[in-house]
Amino acid sequence: MCEAIKDTFTTKAEIISALLNQNVFKMPDGRQFYEASEKELEHILYSKTTEDHYC
């Protein structure tokens, strides 16, 4: 993952929006996004995207 990606998202809402744009609607364990920490959301987002998509 490139450094530019890490600086792209500054709030939990932006991460959730990016996940929704990737057609991800819940955490893998079934929780809603608001129940997850920002770090958990970032991990899911970065595992679902490729460097080419954002870099």
Rank of each mutant, 00 (worst) to 15 (best):
E38P: 02
Y46V: 10
D7G: 04
Y34L: 08
K48L: 11
L19H: 01
T8E: 09
V24Y: 03
E3P: 10
F33C: 14
F25Y: 09
E51S: 10
L19D: 07
C2T: 13
D29E: 12
M27E: 06
K6Q: 08
K48V: 13
Y46S: 04
I15N: 11
E51C: 14
H53N: 07
A13H: 04
S17Y: 00
E35M: 14
Y34W: 09
Y34V: 12
A18R: 07
Q32Y: 08
Q22D: 05
V24F: 04
T50N: 06
T8A: 04
L20T: 06
T11V: 01
A36T: 13
I15A: 14
E35A: 15
E51I: 14
Q22C: 07
K6S: 06
S37L: 12
Y46L: 10
Q32V: 09
D7N: 13
N21F: 04
K39Y: 07
V24H: 04
L45Y: 02
I5L: 13
E3F: 13
E14N: 08
E42F: 00
I15G: 12
T8H: 06
S47T: 09
E14D: 11
E14V: 06
S37A: 11
K48D: 03
H53V: 05
F33K: 14
C55H: 08
A4G: 05
Y46R: 13
I16F: 03
K26C: 01
T50S: 15
I15C: 12
L19W: 08
A36R: 07
T49E: 03
L41N: 12
T8P: 00
S37V: 12
Q32G: 11
M1Q: 14
T50L: 09
S37P: 15
F33W: 15
F9Y: 15
E14K: 15
L41E: 07
A18M: 01
E38D: 09
S37M: 11
F9T: 07
S17L: 02
K26V: 03
Y54W: 14
F33I: 06
T8K: 14
A36D: 14
V24N: 06
T49L: 07
F9N: 04
S47G: 03
Y54T: 08
K26N: 05
A18E: 13
C55R: 12
H43I: 00
A4V: 06
Y46A: 04
K26S: 03
R31D: 01
S47I: 03
L19T: 05
F25I: 10
A18N: 08
I15K: 15
L45G: 02
H53W: 01
E35Q: 15
N21E: 05
D29S: 06
E51Y: 06
K12D: 08
A18G: 09
F25N: 12
A18F: 03
E40T: 07
N21A: 08
I44E: 10
K39S: 06
H43R: 05
I5C: 15
H53M: 11
R31I: 10
D7Y: 01
E40Q: 12
D7L: 03
L45T: 01
H43A: 04
E14H: 07
I44N: 02
A4L: 04
H53G: 08
Q32A: 09
K48I: 05
F9A: 03
T10D: 07
M1K: 15
R31K: 13
Y34A: 14
C2M: 10
D52V: 05
N23Y: 03
K26Q: 11
F33H: 13
D29G: 07
